[in-house]
Design a protein around this nucleic acid. Structure first.
Length: 432
RNA sequence: GGUGAGAUACUCAAGCGGCCAACGAGGGCGGACUGUAAAUCCGCUGACUACGUCUUCGCAGGUUCGAAUCCUGCUCUCACCA
């Protein structure tokens, strides 16, 4: 089996931040195993985790074996990297639950199932860490690393010195040892010779290679990828609602797709290389196409498609497209009325709702009542009047005036009325 | 403890007896334009039974036909001096 040059691949995709000398040659020799750690602090990964996931996925496509390590043990300690304060600890039951969820999500990107030589493996460091006693650990592992070495790491320095008043517990100080031990363990058990991670993980990873060298006399390698930024300076992976999660229950496929679609032009060029498996020629021609007609947003659309299909599947992606067309396209009230109830609810998932009685509708519901008096969608009747005067209000996608009355003719699926203020705020009237 | 300055809407900040629901800026919202972007332009931004009425300018009283504006007390903030 010939290996595709993984380092080469990372370079043109802009995913290589640092690599340990000799890594490229090491990977070209034959199939190697590499791992990335995932933190099971929640029952879902978010798109911030997507970069390390893609590292593994690209790695597998280059012919190597990816290992996803769920940090059951390390998650109990908390990584001090980039954290200014002590972290809360999770109990074992929560961790186990989270691990199961994370595992399912990784399956969308990595091939765990096939019997190919380089099928992905999932491991949990709790499984080996729980057997080790404290005495054993400090004698067999701790003996090999000096405190001086550990103190020199940025993650530790930042917390102990300078303006940080919080200090750092012994537990967090130990973190790098525990993570380092993972590498040693995988090196011994699975012939894992490479650890990858975000650039903030460099310090932790090198503690691992150090342990491998000192204890086993072997050689471990390291690759880090840059932290993903957004050109406008805001944080990647956050929308108004908080994190963008991979779990559809937390972030609907529609919102997930929208997040990618709203990427700025500049970022889209970067992201399409990182978050999709498209080859260089395809991406180059897409970028070319995008430059000629930026308003068509081919880059954003393709990016959204690739990532959404990967994370949620083709069907969910198509629903997201349909929803997007309804919300942002030139859809009319007729388009809305065709929708079945379930699709309708999916599209307007998370939109504020209020219930009004059937009689109100039969008598004809005036717009002040629909917007404020009976529903509290807007803060006050004045606000409602203002919105109407501004020509901002639509019922079922059609602009209405102050004297409009909602009647049973306006019901969608016989029980809903869609009200809008402006382009972006939607309200759903539920008729009972 | 002493002296001085201040407290105005989401934020900053005018106003210092009637023309004040309160200038202006930022923010927010809406409209036009547009690519579901950026920039730009325009409008709105206390409430209500709405050409009018009511409640708001730290809190409580008072003077006056009339107070955010003047007086008294209180609370808090800031600056300077002990």
């Amino acid at each position: 089996m010939t290996m595709k040059n993984f380092i080469e691949e990372l370079k043109w995709r802009g995913m290589l931040h640092q690599d340990m000398p000799g890594t490229e040659e090491h990977l070209l020799e034959k199939m190697r195993s590499a791992y990335v750690g995932f933190d099971p602090t929640a029952d879902s990964l978010h798109i911030g985790n997507l970069v390390p996931i893609m590292l593994l996925a690209h790695y597998q496509r280059c012919g190597h074996r990816p290992i996803a390590l769920v940090g059951g043990a390390t998650g109990m300690i908390g990584d001090p990297s980039g954290k200014s304060s002590e972290r809360n600890l999770l109990d074992e039951k929560t961790l186990r639950h989270n691990q199961e969820c994370v595992k399912a999500q990784l399956g969308h990107f990595l091939d765990f199932e096939s019997d190919a030589e380089n099928a992905a493996i999932l491991v949990n460091n709790y499984d080996w860490m729980k057997e080790i006693s404290f005495l054993e650990f400090i004698r067999d592992v701790g003996k090999h690393i000096t405190v001086n070495y550990m103190m020199a790491k940025d993650s530790v320095k930042n917390r102990i010195s300078s303006e940080s008043k919080e200090g750092m517990s012994f537990t967090e100080f130990t973190y790098q040892m525990v993570q380092g031990y993972d590498f040693l363990h995988l090196y011994r058990e699975n012939e894992t010779t490479l650890q990858m991670g975000g650039s903030d993980q460099w310090g932790n990873i090198t503690t691992g290679t150090e342990l491998i060298r000192r204890i086993s006399g072997g050689k471990g390698y390291a690759i880090t990828c840059p932290l993903i930024t957004k050109s406008d300076g805001s944080k990647f992976g956050k929308s108004e609602g908080g994190n963008v999660w991979l779990d559809a229950k937390r972030t609907s496929a529609y919102k997930f797709y929208q997040y990618w679609l709203n990427t700025s032009d500049e970022d889209a060029e970067k992201y399409i290389k990182i978050f999709t498996f498209l080859d260089k020629e395809t991406i180059d021609s897409l970028i070319e196409e995008h430059k000629e007609a930026p308003h068509v947003r081919v880059l954003q659309k393709r990016l959204g498609e690739e990532v959404t299909v990967a994370a949620h599947g083709k069907e969910e992606y198509e629903k997201a497209i349909a929803a997007s067309n309804i919300l942002f396209g030139k859809s009319s009230s007729d388009d809305l009325k065709i929708l079945d109830e379930q699709t309708f609810l999916d599209v307007f998932d998370g939109v504020p709702q209020a219930t009004v009685s059937k009689e109100d509708i039969d008598n004809g519901l005036d717009m002040i009542g629909a917007l404020a008096a009976k529903t509290n969608f807007l803060n006050s009747n004045s606000d409602a009047r203002r919105a109407l005067k501004e020509n901002a209000v639509s019922v079922n996608k059609e602009k209405v005036k102050e004297d409009f009355l909602i009647t049973s003719n306006d019901l969608i699926a016989n029980k809903y009325v869609l009200i809008q203020r402006g382009k972006k705020s939607y309200f759903l009237l539920n008729v009972k």
